[in-house]
Amino acid sequence: MPMKSPIAVPTSTVARNALVALAVVVVGAAVYWMADILTPLAMAIFLLIMIDGVKRWIEARSSLPGHLAGAAALLVVVVGFFLSIAIIVYGARGFFDETNGVVVRIGPRIDHILADIYALLRLPATPPTASDLIARVDVGSYLALVATQAQGVVGGAIFVMIYLGFLLASQSGFRRKLVNMFPDRHARAEALEVFQRVRGGVEGYLWVQTVTGAMICAAAWVLMRAVGLQNAEFWTFVIFVVGFIPVLGGAVAGLAPPLFALVQFESYWQALVLLGGLQAILFISGNFIQPRMQGDNQNIDPVVVLLALAFWGKVWGVVGMFLSTPLAVMAMAILAEFKGSRWMAILLSGDGEPYAESGSPENEDRRRVNAPQARPD
């Protein structure tokens, strides 16, 4: 039986894919070694996109001129950013209250829970105490790590605001730079279309996560107040914030409040109600509400979301976890616009179609709607 000749692959295609793979490795190494510089810059760009979206939302629903709408959007985002940090710090103080804080009651409560577990399982041994468990853990190193992380959050927030200020100052020259980079009006319109698709993908992700997060928080707050959980407002805010972290955010939102309910209450039914109720809320949101709100720009493969979470979490820590999905959305939107990299966008997409094929009615309609209006030079 004659052997079939191998499939001929153009040398240019092999060379191009090899260069792309090499560029990915180089960029990955760069973002890892320059994490201290790039992390606050990426967060500042993320806030800049939010400010631009809020600005256009204000302009569409009010008669404010562009500069006043921009100032209002900047005030909303910056105040919200620092308010988030203040809520976290204030809520954390409640756990260390000397009279009614969680830390004061955690030792005796753990002893009681361990005794109940041993009695339920009818174990002959004497249950260990909280002091025995703590003695096996290097508490000092963990406290030092927490203090270092807290210091890093404060310092990082300052650098984020500095980067954001410079980005806002340089934003006014973006149009002039675009004109000089793309003197041809048609090429400039295409570049603006790519930019708008990237921006639309990130803004769509933020919109979906914000709306669904608000729904989850409203239901979770009612549930936590109903069972009498302390610091319900703080836990509501935590649930909203961690909702922007894929996979891990749902685990923290569904397990952290019930665990603290075990420490607060003498009985167990409050923790069980919180566990079942929060899991039901997250299940309904993740399987029914959120998929209906997601559009084509969030057609990301779940495996890619998980890999992006692992990669950016390793490279940039907690900030990378928050930005992992927006960065994946941006990457897919950019890669889908070029023939040489479209295959990577297809791999990143959930259904193999990051955007409709060129020339198809769906693609033409989308381009007609999203295409920016060309302005005079």
Rank of each mutant, 00 (worst) to 15 (best):
D184K: 11
G156M: 03
H186M: 08
F182S: 07
M161N: 06
L167P: 01
V160R: 03
S170F: 13
F182R: 07
Q171K: 10
L178N: 01
L164C: 11
G173I: 12
P183S: 06
F166D: 01
G165D: 02
R185D: 12
G156I: 10
Y163G: 05
M181A: 13
H186Q: 08
L178Y: 04
I158F: 15
G165Y: 02
S170C: 07
R176N: 07
R176E: 11
F166I: 02
A157R: 06
N180K: 14
F182L: 15
G165E: 01
D184M: 13
G173F: 12
R185H: 08
P183Y: 09
G165W: 02
A169W: 00
V160I: 15
R185T: 09
L168F: 13
M181P: 05
M181V: 15
R185I: 08
R175D: 12
G165N: 01
H186G: 02
V160F: 05
F166M: 01
G165T: 03
M181C: 10
L167I: 08
K177C: 10
K177E: 09
I162Q: 00
I158G: 07
A169L: 01
G173L: 10
D184A: 12
I158V: 15
M161P: 02
K177I: 09
M161I: 11
L168A: 10
A157K: 05
L164K: 13
F174R: 12
L168H: 12
F159S: 09
L168V: 15
P183W: 12
F166C: 05
N180I: 10
R175S: 12
I158A: 15
F166W: 08
K177M: 13
R175P: 00
M181L: 15
P183D: 02
Q171W: 07
F174C: 06
M161S: 09
S172A: 14
Y163I: 12
L168P: 02
I158C: 11
M181W: 11
A169R: 00
R176W: 03
L164I: 12
R176Y: 04
G156Q: 06
I158H: 08
A187R: 08
R176K: 09
G173N: 08
V179M: 04
